[in-house]
């Protein structure tokens, strides 16, 4: 039975909720608006909200001045590359633990999770030195390796929890029919797990895209993804808010949209299944 709610009450709650939501969203909205201003309008005081000459000039300039597309490309290669490699490693592992569990499966899962608890800063020094010697500093490959390993445990955990939900009888049946292990994975499990794999992928891409410890410390100019590139706007050489906003809007837009689509699965992934 749905609770009876008076319209007045509903309107009241709605106004309160929308007000708070817009307040929280405001910095993002403000960034998007500012990105369409000229530099002069961007620092106008009092601030102008809609009544200014909308222009795309900041977007054009960001690309011309800073080779913006290079950093977009870096972000894309690094986040997609690390996600893809991690997926290739984690699918078999998750499959193995979900369908052929042993006494130690739980311990292995917990141990994998525990590697996530290692603070990045604790291993910064050895990585920095090793990368320096191997020539991996400021390379996309170097960042892909780190991000792959960083997100591997979460991928395995999420895939494991999705695989677990596939009923074992289906597997029994196809084994009876003489399907090989390879066929079983490719034709039965993977299609059934596609929704789970897709949301796992999204979460992983989001986290890799937004990563801002290793990207800031390991990359400089050549391999810098957007998160590191945007940080270069922190230098106090002047107020380029319109350009900062344009660069920021482009950097967060794709991830924001992905995030909106994946928010339900996100809870599960980020809490390691503790909250569904």
């Amino acid at each position: 039975m749905a609770r009876n709610v008076t319209t007045a009450k509903r309107v009241g709650w709605s106004i309160a909720a929308w007000f708070v939501a817009l307040l929280i969203f405001f910095p993002i909205l403000w960034t998007v608006i500012t990105s369409f201003k000229s530099e002069g309008a961007a620092i106008a005081f009092p601030p102008v909200f809609f009544d200014f000459d909308w222009t795309l000039s900041s977007y054009v300039e960001v690309q011309e001045r800073s080779d913006y597309l290079l950093h977009v490309w870096n972000s894309a290669v690094i986040s997609l590359g690390s996600t893809f490699i991690a997926l290739l490693i984690s699918i078999p592992a998750a499959w193995s633990m979900a369908f052929n569990p042993t006494k130690r499966t739980k311990d292995i899962l917990m141990w994998m999770l525990s590697t996530k608890m290692l603070p990045a800063v604790a291993v910064l020094v050895p990585f920095y030195l090793a990368y320096k010697n191997l020539g991996l500093l400021d390379t996309k490959l170097g960042l892909i390796i780190i991000l792959t390993m960083m997100n591997l445990p979460i991928l395995i955990w999420m895939l494991f929890s999705y695989f677990k939900e596939i009923p074992g009888e289906i597997l029994e049946a196809c084994r009876m029919d003489g399907a090989t292990l390879g066929q079983e994975i490719v034709y039965i499990l993977t299609p059934m797990a596609v929704p789970g794999i897709a949301s796992t992928l999204l979460l992983n891409i989001i986290m890799a895209w937004n990563e801002a410890f290793w990207t800031l410390n390991i990359s400089a100019s050549q391999a810098a993804p957007l998160s590191a590139f945007i940080a270069s706007y922190s230098s106090p050489e002047g107020l380029f808010w319109a350009k900062l906003s344009a660069a920021s809007t482009l950097a967060i837009a794709p991830i924001l949209i992905m995030g909106w689509f994946s928010q339900k699965q996100l809870v599960r992934g980020l809490t390691f299944g503790a909250v569904k």
Partner: peptide
């Protein structure tokens, strides 16, 4: 609560989580 446009409110509220830390800090 029973509010209008709950889905959109939810999206607006969750959005900052997807903003990369460097962008959030600079903005």
């Amino acid at each position: 609560q029973p509010i209008f446009g709950q889905g959109i409110v939810r999206i607006l509220v969750i959005s900052p989580f997807f903003v990369m830390p460097t962008v959030a800090a600079l903005v």
